Every structure is written in C-alpha cells, then in structure tokens.
Simulated assay, not measured.
Amino acid sequence: MIRRTLLASAAAGLTLGLAAPAMAQDDPTKACFVYVGPIGDGGWTYQHHEGAMAVKEEFGDKVEIAYQESVPEGADAERVITQMALSGCDIIFTTSFGFMDATNNVAAKFPDIKFEHATGYKRDHPNVSTYDARFYEGRAVLGHIAGKMTKTNKIGYIGSFPIPENIQGINSYYLHAKKANPDVELVVTWAYTWFDPAKEADAARAMIDQGVDVIAAHTDSTAPLGEAAKEGGKVIGFGQASDMAAFKTNDDGTPGPRVASIIDNWAPYYIDRVGAVMDGTWEQQASWGGMPEGEVVIGEITEAVPADVKAEAEELIAKMTSGEYHPFTGPINKQDGSAWLAEGEVADDGTLAGMDFYVEGITGEIPN
C-alpha cells in the first residue's frame, strides 16, 4: 500500500517517484492540490486547504491528501503538476487561474489521472474539468453594505489581475453600492498579484489617502484589513475568500474594520469530486456554483452594520440563494453608455465568463 503522507509545507516538498506505482484495490485514493499562495495566507489558499482537509475528514483512511503551496504561475506550475502526476495522484486540483495551460499540458500526458482547474475555462482533454464560484453574488452583498456605510461616498476595490473573475466582482460591487447610494464613487486599484501583503497594503493605503473609507479586495492576504485597522474606526472592509474573523475586533476590544466577509466554501465540491473518482463516476464538467450550492457564503455581518442595512443584506442573500434575484439584471449600460441589459434582462453565463468591460459609472480603464 502506498504510504499515506500529508505534505506540511512547500519547504517539505513533494516525495516523488519516477513513475506511479500500480494501486491495489484497498489503496487510498490520492487527492492532490496545487496552491498559488501559502496555506497561512488567511484567504484564498487557506480556504482551498480547508476544503482539502474536509475531504480527509469525510473519507478518512480511504483518501490520501498531498499538496504544495506557493507555486508560481508559469513553468514552475507545470513542473509541480507533473511531479504530482508521477507521484501517484488520482485527482489533481490546480487552484489558480494562471495554472490553466500547465494543467492542460500535463493532463495530455497522463490521461488516466483526473485534473480539476479552478476559475479557468480550458478543458482541452477529457480528463480535465473546470470549477469556479459565483463570487459576484457575494460582491453584490458587500457592495450594498459599502454604499450604505460610506461617509465619504468613496469606496475602493483592490483587484489582482484584470481577468473576468475580477471584473465581474468590481461591476457587481459597484452596481449594488450605487443602488444603495446614488452618490457613491468607486476607486479601483490593480495590485497585479494574488498574494503580496506589501503590495496589497500599499494599494489600500493609496486609496485611503484618496478619501476611500470602505475597501473590498480580490487579493489573498489580510493586509488591506490591516491598513483599515490603522484608521481607528474611520475605514471598514471585508474578509476576502475566508472569514478573516480576527479583524472583527481590535486588540483594545473596539470594533475592528471587518464588518462582513465573502467566504469561498470549496468543501462540498472537493468532497463530491473526490467521491466521484472513488466510485468511478467522475466525468468532465464545467462547474460554476454560488450561493444556492453553498459555495459562496457571506460571513457574520457584525453589529457595526446598522440593523436595517444588515436586514437588507440578508434579504439580498436570501433572494440570490433562492434564485429569485440575479446581480446582473437590467437595465444596465456599459461604461461608454451603450445599452447592455434591458429592463429585467439577466446576463447570460457566456457574457459573464468573458466579461471585459466596466459598467456605466465606473471611471478609469481596464488594463490590458
């Protein structure tokens, strides 16, 4: 039987052979994870790792978990994914958009291994699936809170890279802030990184210096909330990808800057897909779950949020969870004023998956 191992950190590395040994029927299914950041980032990678641990809790000795953290997007990713394939992984989850080509390249060489790529769209081989979450649903809720709670009428959003996933979030955040507060203005800052606390902190500081008093982020660390905390209650923000509950309260016991959060709950998906490998029912698919599937969750809305605003946010959550409301429901124009969605029209998934434009009211250009 293959020895069960859990790779504790990138420093520990992967214990690999030159070829995957044949597995006996009673050998565990080996589920492997490639992370773009450290599992201690408190955000994106932390939450994916929580999903991996949920797989272990669900299946016990029937599964073996292996992972590598802080894998750069690019050539290093292909090397790591290849090593995982050689080490006997039965299913490999690659958890960042920039792993897309590397995932498909390796999948072509290992047709008997299942590959799952997060947030991408390429499924070049029958053993590759993609999965994503409708983060824009959570952004709608955070945008409503931001629009209601800003005192300066200037709210901020830190983007990682100008890909559709980020642009969806920016547009949803702004649209719902604008509905809540017609005077709101949005400042967008691109960090060009998924995880770099120094850059994220600089981006947050630059916005605060411009008068922004509510900050959302699509980057992976807690640094933006750390900058908000320095403002002594004048700036608020949101947990990103995980709850970031440590920022609910400051060290002196006063309310902290984190007033709500958007939580990526990957556990149900990971359990389902590993289970499908175990029982032989795995098939290629493109999954895009949201609030109805339990993949997008809004963390506790704290008492810093007025009761009426909290009630409105909870109503919005309930309507999206039931399917009664879609965040991109017309009338909505594009940034240049041209019509996009007519009254009552709902954006289709194809347009959202390739979204490359801002909605009307957002200033600035989307970088190439």
Score class of each variant (00 low, 15 high):
G294V: 14
E200D: 04
C32V: 15
F135T: 04
M320H: 08
A246T: 15
D132M: 06
K199D: 12
I145W: 00
L352G: 01
L16P: 07
A10Q: 15
I81P: 01
P306M: 07
A66L: 14
V36A: 11
K114V: 14
G37P: 09
W282D: 11
L175W: 01
G60D: 03
P72I: 03
N368C: 00
K310P: 05
P162N: 02
Y35W: 13
Y46R: 03
E295P: 06
Q83K: 00
G226T: 04
A140V: 13
E73F: 06
G13K: 08
V212Q: 03
D183K: 10
E312Q: 12
A12Q: 08
S287I: 15
W266I: 02
I317S: 01
G156N: 08
V55D: 07
F33I: 11
E300Y: 09
I91A: 01
M207C: 01
V187G: 00
G354P: 02
G13R: 04
E324W: 06
I263C: 03
Q168Y: 10
G299A: 10
R205T: 02
I145S: 00
D41E: 05
G232C: 09
L225Y: 08
M320C: 08
Q210N: 07
L86F: 04
M23I: 11
I163K: 04
D251P: 07
G350V: 15
K230T: 12
F195A: 11
K199E: 08
K199S: 14
E57P: 04
C89E: 07
A267T: 02
M291H: 01
K199Y: 10
Y269A: 06
E293H: 09
T189E: 13
E57T: 14
E365G: 13
Y270S: 06
D349N: 05
G280K: 05
V259P: 04
L86T: 11
A22V: 15
G354L: 01
G330R: 01
T5G: 05
A11W: 10
R273T: 12
A339Q: 11
I39K: 07
A201E: 11
T281I: 08
F195W: 09
V63Q: 02
G156T: 12
P197L: 15
D308E: 14
A318Y: 01
Y173C: 13
A228L: 07
Y192E: 15
F161C: 00
V141N: 06
V34I: 11
A19C: 12
E343G: 06
D213S: 13
T321K: 14
L186K: 03
G88R: 00
S261I: 03
T193C: 09
E343K: 04
E165Q: 15
C32Q: 05
M244H: 05
V305L: 04
I301A: 12
K151N: 12
A339E: 14
A19M: 09
L6F: 15
